[in-house]
């Protein structure tokens, strides 16, 4: 039972983690990215369209990996619009993001209906399921929790986490990126190209959000219906809840993932079924818990100082 919940948790935890890390790159460089939801939709849409077309011609894992690349490329493409508006044109970052969030599902429905007559794009996710990872799946406790009934996307998500942490804190690029989010004028004064760093950050966030869209859809459904059910917004919540720091984002994403898993499977958990609380209250729990936790932890917010402010060269 515990193993089942752990598997379920991973399905929600990993996409939230990936997308929240994507948001982290953008926001640590000073650009608000409320477009994560829309970018997830676009990434999931193009890649699932690809998967549903080609999955019977290629081995499962190859298709999925190619799908991930396509999702990332799509995310980068969509993020270009956000980056150009926010960085080069000093546009209102929230409005630009909202535009993308409106555009994405409309585009997905429109294209799906042109291509296949219906709004939904069906695919066969069972091809991608790894029933048990060789050797690792045999380990007691850890094996059934993490290495059985899993998707390759789970391990990619962990990889993204490690790389993100490393890039942000252990590379020159990461240091420059953080400085652009705290004090872009100071960064500029020591020769950092704020525009270029912010572009890179927004594009990374697009790639990760696009990938997150596919990673969310593959284990949890059999068709893509032009929505990621608000997970992009949840990822923003995870990001803020995680105080814009990768290690805290893990905890926040795991908490949300666990809550979603309990919600999704409370009818099969013995003692929860016996209490017979209406399902609606399980659905509310993660959101209420977030509010309560935020109420106690937000007094000192660690938001990047220049978040949301357009950078103008020459402005003091």
């Amino acid at each position: 039972m515990i193993f089942f919940i752990m598997q379920q948790t991973m399905f929600f935890f990993i996409p939230l983690l990936i997308v929240a890390l994507g948001g982290m790159f953008s926001e640590r460089s000073g650009i608000v990215n409320i477009a994560l939801e829309g970018i997830m939709v676009m990434g999931a849409f193009t890649s699932i369209l690809f998967i549903s077309t080609f999955q019977h011609m290629m081995p499962g894992q190859t298709t999925l990996l190619l799908g991930l690349l396509i999702a990332m490329a799509t995310g980068v493409f969509v993020a270009c619009f956000h980056a150009y508006a926010c960085i080069n044109l000093n546009a209102n970052q929230t409005i630009s993001g909202i535009a993308i969030n409106i555009f994405a599902p409309a585009f997905a429905i429109y294209t799906a209906r042109i291509v296949g007559q219906t709004q939904q794009v069906f695919f066969a996710p069972q091809m991608f399921l790894i029933s048990s990872v060789p050797i690792l799946g045999e380990i007691p406790i850890i094996g059934p929790s993490f290495f059985q009934g899993a998707y390759i996307t789970t391990y990619i998500g962990i990889g993204v986490l490690v790389v993100s942490w490393f890039v942000l804190y252990k590379t020159r690029f990461g240091l420059r990126l953080r400085s652009c989010g705290e004090h872009p004028q100071a960064a500029d004064s020591v020769g950092i190209n704020v525009y270029r760093i912010r572009w890179a950050a927004v594009l990374i966030s697009g790639a990760l959000a696009g990938m997150g869209g596919l990673v969310l859809i593959v284990p949890t459904s059999i068709a893509f219906n032009a929505t990621v059910s608000g997970y992009g917004f949840l990822a923003i919540a995870v990001l803020i809840f995680g105080q814009w720091k990768p290690l805290r984002i893990i905890l926040a994403a795991f908490f949300f993932g666990l809550m979603q898993a309990i919600t999704a499977s409370h009818t099969v958990i013995g003692f929860l079924r016996d209490i017979a609380i209406p399902a609606h209250f399980y659905h509310m729990t993660p959101y209420i818990a977030t509010l309560v936790l935020l109420a106690f932890t937000s007094k000192r917010s660690a938001a990047p100082r220049a978040l949301g402010q357009p950078y103008e060269k020459g402005l003091r």
Binding site: L234, I236, A237, F241, M284, Y287, L291, L294, A295
Partner: peptide, 27 residues
Amino acid sequence: LLKAYRNVHEVISCIMSNYIGMFLVNW
């Protein structure tokens, strides 16, 4: 209230309250 007295950013609390409200109203 959360914004004024607990410094919770209104965007995140609004997103949360949207979902809570949706489930609560359904119930």
